[in-house]
Amino acid sequence: MSTANLFRLILLASIWGGSFLFMRIAAPVLGPAVLIEYRVVFAALFLAAIALLMKKPLDWKRHWKHYVILGFFNSALPFLLFAWSARTLSASVLAVLNATAPMWGALIGAVWQRQMVSARVLLGIVLGTAGVALLVGFDHVSSREGAGLAIAAALFASFNYGIASTYARAAPAVEPFANAHGSMWTAALLVLPSLLFFPAPGEPTAGIMAAAVALGVLCSGVAYLLYYGLIRDVGATSALTVTFISPLFGILWGALFLQEVVGWYTVAGAAIVIAGTALVTGYRPNFGARAKPA
């Protein structure tokens, strides 16, 4: 992997790790529904501008059902669940719980295909479960009121990412950028009804709105462009490295900007979850290999 691509990979990991920081800042004031509606609308508008510049129209008539399914399981529902959990949990805990998504994907894929998981995948799932248990068992946020439900909601959010990845493998072949663009618009429509049940509990300040804009434009719009660009240039396997790096940035940003406590259990739990994720995905880094032409 070239220096430029390595920089893009680290930048992407830092952006996705930062999404939990922005949710932790804005969710208590805007509430989960308002925050996520802002997120997906800002992301959709940003991607629409890029699509206009790149002359990439969406084939709504042909793929609208695909965009609805992807928008629900890969954006609307998990975003809402993470934002709801962010009112209680720390950014570092959210970032580590998010890293369990590949494990859920492996389990869902095995059930869907009616196949037994391999010993390696099973070991990865056991490690991931142990890492989560260590993290939430020792972290002081677990003692907060409603923490149990918040942890369950965050894990269910990751479970939905697993559903989305399983669906995507059998879904119609659609250009990755179109998937991101179309799913953001359908997510914006799907999140709308939740505004009736979760109005904003407070008045947003300029800083809160800046966090909401950053969550949409930076953590969804720009992040998608970086991610799919990496897949094109270095291949999906190397791009997958972001899964292992982003929790580290989630922990770092929480400690730097929110003064979250990083204990031995945070580092150990994150390391075990990342190791489990690597086993489940069968990841083997090969940065020296040249990417195949797109």
Rank of each mutant, 00 (worst) to 15 (best):
S2W: 03
A4Y: 05
A4G: 10
L12M: 05
A13Y: 05
A13F: 09
I15F: 03
G17A: 04
I25S: 08
I25H: 11
A33W: 05
A33E: 01
L35F: 07
E37V: 08
R39Q: 08
V40E: 05
F42H: 11
A43Q: 08
A44Q: 02
L47Y: 02
A49F: 06
M54L: 15
M54N: 13
M54Q: 15
P57G: 12
L58N: 03
H63Y: 14
W64Y: 12
Y67K: 03
I69W: 11
F72P: 06
N74C: 06
A76R: 04
L80F: 14
W84Q: 15
T88A: 09
L89S: 00
A91S: 15
L94F: 00
N98M: 11
G105H: 05
W112A: 14
V126N: 06
L127C: 12
L127S: 02
L127W: 07
G128W: 05
A133P: 07
L134P: 07
G148H: 04
L149F: 15
A154E: 04
A157F: 03
S158W: 12
G162L: 12
R169F: 08
A173P: 09
V174C: 11
A180T: 00
H181N: 11
M184A: 02
M184Q: 10
T186I: 04
L190R: 02
L192Y: 02
L195C: 09
L196K: 02
L196F: 08
P199A: 09
A200S: 13
A206V: 12
M209L: 15
G216N: 01
V217R: 11
L218Q: 06
L225H: 01
Y227I: 03
L230H: 01
A236K: 12
A236H: 10
T243F: 12
T243W: 05
I245S: 00
I251M: 06
I251R: 06
L252W: 05
Q259W: 07
Q259Y: 08
Q259R: 08
G263V: 00
Y265T: 10
I272G: 04
I272W: 10
I274Y: 07
A275M: 09
V280W: 11
G282V: 13
R284Y: 14
G288H: 09
